[in-house]
Structure formats: C-alpha cells, structure tokens
Design a binder for these strands. Structure first.
Lengths: 142, 142
DNA sequence: CAACAACTATTGACGTCGACAATTATTGCT
DNA sequence: AGCAATAATTGTCGACGTCAATAGTTGTTG
C-alpha cells in the first residue's frame, strides 16, 4: 500500500496549505489576508482590471471578488472606477497607497517564500519554480 | 513590480488548492473528502494509530480527527478500538472494507496526480516529487 | 424596434474547513 | 492523596468555496 507522501498531488496539497498559512501569518499585522494580497499583486501588473477578469485570473468566485475589493477600498489600496465602454462593469485600479503597501511588504513576502524553501539550494529553488510554473501555465491557463 | 507567479510560495499555494479540488472531485462519488482519504491512506501504512498521532501526522486539529473518524466508522472503513495501555486513548484501525476501498480507488487516485502533472515528463515529475518531499520532510517534520 | 438572451456585479444561503477554548475521563507525578 | 498533564470530545467562530437569485445593462435577432 502506497504511503501518503508517495503522491505528488497530495504533497502539493499539503505544502500549498502550509504556504498559505505562512503568507497569512505574515499579512496578519496589516489586516489583510492572502486573497487580498494576491489581488493587489495582480492589480500591480495590470493597470486596472474588470472584476470578472480578477475572478477568472485569480480563480476566485465573482461573489468573493466583491468583498475583497470592498475591503481594499476601505483601506484605500484600490478603487472602483466606472468603465467608459460598459456601464455594467467597474474597473478596479491600484491606488498610490496600495502601491506603497506592496513596496513596503515586498521584502517580507520574499522572506516567507525563502523560509519555506529553506531546505533547497538556489539552483533547486529555480528548478522547482520552473516546474511549478509549467504546471500553473497549463492548469490555471494564465 | 513582480508578478503573482514570480513567487514560488504563491505558486505552491495555488497549485495546492487545485490539487485538492481535483482530489475532492475524484472522491465525490464515494461520499468522502480529501481529508478522509488522507486519513485512510495513513491508516493503511500504520496498523492502527491513536487519534493524537493522526492529528500530528496529518496536520489536522484533534477536534477535526473526531469527525473524520466518525464518518469513516459510519461507512465501515475504520474502527475505534480501546487501547489496552491507556483507557483515554482509542486506536483507529482500517477495516477490510476500508482496505478494499483503497485498493479499488488507487488507480483513480493515481490518475488525479497524473492529470495535474501532465505538462511534465517522467524525469521532471521525479525531480518535482523529490524537491517537494525535501520541503515536506523539514516543514511538516514527518 | 421590441422581445429576449447573455453578461456584470452584487447579495444571500449553505456546507466545509481551520483554529481555539472548554469539558470529561484518565493517567502520571510527587 | 492531590494535582498537573494528556486523549478524546464538544462547541464556537471566522474564513472560505459554491451555488442560486437578482438588478442593471448590453447584444442579438426575429
């Protein structure tokens, strides 16, 4: 009978949980959660996105996006702007404060990942990242 | 500004979620969830375990173990037996039905992981597994 | 051009999950 | 004998994922 850790899929599941825990611990003092942080990071690369784009790219349900953007607006890290083309849509953009927050926490975020990958040397980390990226590219079609 | 997928920790988080989703989808028809399956798989390698062992090895809270074992008992896949040494403890063992269930679903479980790792060739899968295993060994101290 | 299908954001409901405190029964310590 | 520590259990709370339903808007097409 195969053991649990013989299964790469299960390992991914377990380490994914652990990674999320570490991220949330680091974000705790800022009052955000991993989901907010992911959304901010995505906005930082996109110059504004429709909520439905955020939903499909981040993999969260549209109804979840609503609350996340609400929270970020309250903190002044993001804004909803009306779309000129389509009055149904709102365009979510990063504010200057949001960008500053990302800049200030960037280093701490890197430390979380470094912590997790501690047992691997730099070349191995690169390899791991490349392999995961390949899976993510086809699996999350991003 | 770094993109989302520039961060290995975040990639792990996302792919871990995806892996869990795939596992749960495969388990749906059996009425179990990933947590039950993990517990069963662990029992299959252990010849009986105290619930507190299950808790520490699987990383679930002791209070979560209670419900999981309840469910598995209802399905006849596991049993609680009194511990001869310590009347506080119960020893959880796999039943014949539980073992049969694992045997019947083993192939489907492998297919889930194969599905996820599709973009990687066999050598790459082996590399990925080894790297993840190294992280898991130090991070989940198992 | 009027009716209808499709889409965007939003709200609400429901079950699951993870983390924690509290309780009961039992054991170990001293 | 008394008290701290432990195993299992129950209950609670917030976060989370999924799904259904709605309002407002756009696109289509008969």
């Amino acid at each position: 009978m195969r053991g649990l850790h013989a299964d790469t899929g299960y390992l991914l599941y377990r380490l994914g949980l652990r990674s999320g825990q570490l991220f949330n611990a680091f974000l705790q003092e800022s009052g955000l959660r991993l989901r907010h942080y992911a959304l901010l990071r995505f906005l930082a690369t996109s110059k504004g996105a429709l909520q439905r784009e955020l939903s499909s790219r981040l993999g969260y349900d549209p109804s979840a996006i609503v609350g996340l953007v609400d929270d970020l607006e309250k903190l002044g890290f993001a804004e909803r702007r009306p779309s000129p083309d389509d009055r149904r849509s709102r365009i979510v953009v990063l504010t200057a404060d949001g960008r500053a927050f990302l800049r200030d926490t960037d280093e701490a975020g890197l430390r979380v990942t470094n912590d997790l990958l501690q047992p691997l040397d730099p070349a191995e980390r690169e390899t791991l990242h490349t392999l995961l990226q390949r899976i993510a590219d086809t699996e999350l079609n991003s």
